[in-house]
Nucleic acid binder design. Structure first.
Lengths: 108, 108
DNA sequence: CATATTACTCTAGCTGTCAAAGTAATTATT
DNA sequence: AATAATTACTTTGACAGCTAGAGTAATATG
């Protein structure tokens, strides 16, 4: 498991990416992250919902309640046009970050 | 210029790396980071000294005063054995982080 | 009916970043 | 010689993001 404070700053992008693919609810996203990373990263519940709030406040996502569930009622999230644009910027930025960090990680 | 909150979590490693190469003082490290990244990243002064304090508290670096200067007196930092070990771990971790983040950045 | 799982929310605390302001010595400029 | 610019470090206070922990509530399982 990688430390969370090192993923910090990429969380918005990760969540946005999953919602980009299709509308999803919190618990589902949480499981999906664990699945895709082979449990190498698990987002904390409280963190996840904090991300949702932030993204919604910034109008990068919108939410609505679903009608079926296997427990508490599901709040689905949908990416906005703004959110899609923002995600694409983030991907560009990631390439840059990688280059920069690599400078200091290579050659010892 | 990349946002700092996205480099966050890698700062300790970056500083450690530079001190690994040779003993250096704060101002020098600050300039070196700007130089190596072609000004794509500049560490803020207050942040840099906060990093030093943290690393020293964790015994990953040690400090001593230099005798010559072109201004205020220089405090040099030296990496410890523990610091070297920690840096090497960090490099391993970075490979993992890259893989994980890439999962969510590829294919859209 | 008890327990587990699904699903979300809120609060309080911690850590890392950094603007701003300050101290102080050396070097360059006029 | 006085002034400004640069070098060099320190401290404080504020803010943002992550998360443990506790709570609420509905559905599924045995």
């Amino acid at each position: 498991m990688v430390r969370s404070d090192i993923i910090r700053g990429h969380l918005d992008a990760i969540i946005l990416r999953l919602i980009y693919e299709k509308d999803q609810y919190g618990y589902e996203i949480s499981k999906e992250i664990s699945l895709r990373t082979n449990d190498r990263f698990q987002i904390k519940e409280a963190t996840l919902y904090a991300v949702f709030q932030r993204l919604e406040r910034r109008e990068l996502i919108e939410s609505y309640f679903g009608d079926i569930s296997h427990g508490g009622k599901r709040r689905y999230y949908k990416i906005t046009k703004l959110g899609k644009a923002y995600f694409k910027e983030t991907v560009e930025e990631w390439q840059e970050i990688k280059e920069i960090i690599n400078i200091f990680m290579e050659g010892i």
